[in-house]
């Protein structure tokens, strides 16, 4: 189990690094989809099958396509001639190194982590449904409300103003 976990992790991390470092944005979006699939495979190995399939449905299916659509609409499919990094990228890399060092130190030196491996939990879709509609029904409704508001907001923000109105104003 551990070897498979490491192989999946290497593929995921390699795809993530590629998604963050390639010059062409379309290639970045494709590598991002590979990275999301790798995370879904990691979820499968952690006995969270439902979350794995949700990850494929939501991230590989929707978010990656949304990013490709945004690349299309902002006409940024070609590789830029100029540098793809911001002016102060040294500082960004330094902060990243500090963040990772702190995280790694905290993980490796923590005594709060359980030392014994628990047996794999059995989760059925019926269990998940019961929990979602029972104990977590209020958060579920609020998430539905937030999603509706976000959808309306996204349409309003990206809505194209009519050119006729623009001429009248100016």
């Amino acid at each position: 189990m551990s070897t498979l976990l490491i192989i999946t992790a290497v593929v995921t991390l390699f795809a993530a690094v590629a998604a963050m470092s390639l010059r062409n944005l379309v290639h970045c979006a494709l590598m991002l989809a590979v990275s999301f699939s790798g995370v879904a495979a990691l979820y499968l190995q952690l006995n969270a099958e439902f979350v794995a399939f949700t990850e494929i449905l939501v991230y590989v299916g929707a978010v990656a396509i949304l990013i490709v659509m945004a690349i299309l609409l902002t006409r940024s499919g070609e590789s830029p001639e100029k540098s793809v990094l911001t002016a102060g990228w040294y500082a960004g890399v330094a902060v990243t190194a500090m963040v990772f060092t702190t995280l790694g130190w905290a993980i490796l030196s923590s005594s709060a982590l359980p030392q014994t491996v628990a047996p794999a939990p059995v989760v059925s879709v019926k269990n998940i449904g019961d929990t979602l509609m029972g104990r977590y029904v209020l958060p579920l409704e609020i998430v539905g409300l937030v999603l509706t508001a976000a959808m309306i907001g996204a349409v309003l923000i990206a809505f194209k103003a009519e050119p006729r109105d623009k001429n009248q104003k100016s």
């Binding site: 990013i67 500082a91 990772f100 790694g104």
Partner: peptide, 30 residues
Amino acid sequence: MNPLTICLLISALLFATGFAGAVTRRHAIL
């Protein structure tokens, strides 16, 4: 190594990759 520690390290690396990209890349989509 403990599998939980391995998972946490993987996720820390993934976080660092995403963070590095978010603070160093020029394009808003990235």
